[in-house]
Computed example of a mutant assay.
Amino acid sequence: MRYTARHIIAALLMAPLGAFAQHAGAPHAAQDAVVKELMTKELQDIPGKEVLMITVDYPPGSADPIHRHDAHAFVYVIEGSIVMGVKGGKEVTLKAGDTFYEGPDDVHTVGRNASKTKPAKFVVMLVKNKGAEFFIPVK
Rank of each mutant, 00 (worst) to 15 (best):
A5L: 11
R6I: 15
R6C: 08
H7T: 15
I8R: 07
I8N: 08
I9D: 09
L13M: 09
L13I: 13
L13S: 15
L13Y: 07
L13F: 09
M14A: 11
A15W: 05
A19F: 04
F20G: 11
Q22L: 10
H23R: 15
G25F: 07
G25T: 13
A26P: 00
A26V: 14
P27W: 09
H28M: 06
A29G: 14
Q31F: 04
V34H: 01
V35C: 14
K36S: 14
K36I: 12
K36A: 12
L38Q: 12
T40K: 10
T40C: 07
Q44H: 12
Q44R: 14
Q44N: 13
I46L: 15
P47A: 15
P47I: 09
L52H: 04
M53C: 13
I54Y: 01
V56I: 14
V56Q: 06
Y58C: 08
P59Y: 04
P60I: 12
P60Y: 08
P60F: 08
P60R: 04
G61H: 06
G61E: 01
S62A: 15
A63V: 09
D64P: 03
P65Q: 10
P65C: 06
I66V: 15
R68S: 09
R68H: 10
R68N: 10
H72M: 11
H72N: 10
H72A: 09
H72C: 02
F74T: 06
V75C: 02
V77S: 02
V77P: 00
I78E: 04
E79P: 00
E79N: 13
G80V: 07
I82S: 00
I82C: 04
V83Y: 02
G85M: 02
V86G: 00
G88Y: 05
G88A: 07
K90H: 06
E91M: 04
T93H: 07
L94I: 02
K95A: 11
A96N: 08
D98H: 05
F100K: 03
Y101G: 02
Y101W: 09
E102F: 00
E102N: 03
P104K: 08
D105V: 03
V107Q: 01
V107C: 04
V107E: 06
H108L: 06
H108T: 01
V110Q: 06
G111A: 13
G111Y: 01
R112F: 03
R112Q: 08
A114G: 08
T117D: 10
T117I: 10
T117S: 12
K118P: 00
K118G: 00
P119W: 02
P119A: 08
P119S: 10
K121E: 06
F122H: 12
F122N: 05
M125L: 15
L126H: 12
L126Q: 09
V127G: 02
